[in-house]
Design a protein around this nucleic acid. Structure first.
Lengths: 200, 200
DNA sequence: AGATATCTTGAATAAACATTCAAGATATCT
DNA sequence: AGATATCTTGAATGTTTATTCAAGATATCT
């Protein structure tokens, strides 16, 4: 039976969801065979083991996130306007009751990074790439004179990342939309201020 | 052998450390017997089970954190100055290489909250109490005219909590002290601005 | 159609795990 | 000193877990 191979992306998205929902340790192989529709043997053949499946799922998540990022920032809107839309989408994401909607990267980071250097570096690099994507957008905006030429772009990108991490953590204890929106708006204001003021 | 009972606080601090370092799921009973010096039977007798030990450790962590908080804010310094010192101490905490220095509450929250409602509410309430502690300090500062009378205190407390969550998450990928300090300083500036400006 | 190579299947395996409990030890009380 | 109650101890238990592998199934090739 050579063909009939499963759809790798779809399998990884299922695994992704299961890992985000239950966490890595509490996700059993049985959970994964159920959610992916694959049998144990197939998983071990394709991904070596549970850890390999996590690594693959992390890369898929990264790739999906990049596409989503592009979708927000590729229009010809001013960066700050795109950023506002992007932040609002995170608020919507976080405000979903019931289904646990977190970031797989940060969730896996807090859960297992300190015990597995390879997983940690995959996650760290992915998160850093995401931060660099903000960086790049801000740079483009400086070139097009939207932002002040002497604003501190690396600092802004880092502070923005930090704020979003915080927002997502905050959302785990409080899912009231208004509160989350207010926090996101505040973060946006603070980033905007940094983008206009010269760095000191 | 009636007396010779173990020192409950010390046991809980050991358990606390183990849980923070390895995470709840990856912490085995063997790890806990090793770190606490207690035998399985004693743990089950005193805390019912592993989950009970976590719950007790969470409460101990909360209580310890409150004492530490008081230590920073009970002097007669202006609130903003105490806050600065408090934030700096978090930076120092996060910048420790090697030993994983996170907040047990947020770590446990991301790992297990979505599967255990009791654990979740214990954590949520603890974190909310911590947020309220900021709240209270800001209120006192308004009364003493240090802060503007019409600043939005609940908003400030929430934004501060969010920022610290974010800082701690950020520190898991980047432990360069200068970078963390810069982020904490930025957070401080933004909170200070909120404390002086009238809310809009 | 038969042979072959490749992929699928899921029961079997072995290790790790939380939890229990009966035997042993010590202090207090009579 | 003896009896009793309480606490300690850690090997045994039964469950859950990730992982393997040999048998079975299907498509392609000759």
């Amino acid at each position: 039976m050579p063909p009939a191979k499963f759809d790798r992306e779809q399998v990884l998205r299922s695994a992704m969801n299961t890992f985000v929902q239950k966490g890595y340790s509490k996700t059993s192989m049985q959970d994964l065979t159920k959610s992916t529709g694959l049998h144990p043997g197939s998983i071990y053949c394709a991904f070596e083991n549970k850890r390999g499946l996590l690594l693959a799922a992390l890369l898929q998540y990264k790739s999906d996130s990049e596409l989503s990022f592009e979708a927000y920032f590729s229009h010809d809107l001013p960066v700050l306007q795109s950023l506002k839309l992007y932040l609002d989408s995170i608020v919507v994401d976080c405000a979903q009751k019931g289904e646990y909607k977190a970031c797989l990267l940060t969730r896996a980071l807090t859960e297992i990074a300190d015990q597995d250097d390879e997983v940690k570096s995959v996650i760290s690099e992915s998160l850093y790439d995401w931060q660099k994507a903000f960086h790049k957008q801000f740079e483009l905006a400086v070139e097009s004179k939207e932002l002040s030429a002497n604003c501190n772009i690396p600092h802004m990108a880092r502070y923005l990342s930090m704020g979003i991490y915080g927002l997502r953590t905050f959302a785990q204890t409080q899912t009231t939309r208004d509160v989350l929106q207010e926090l996101a708006d505040q973060l946006f204001d603070d980033i905007r201020r940094l983008s206009l003021e010269p760095s000191h």
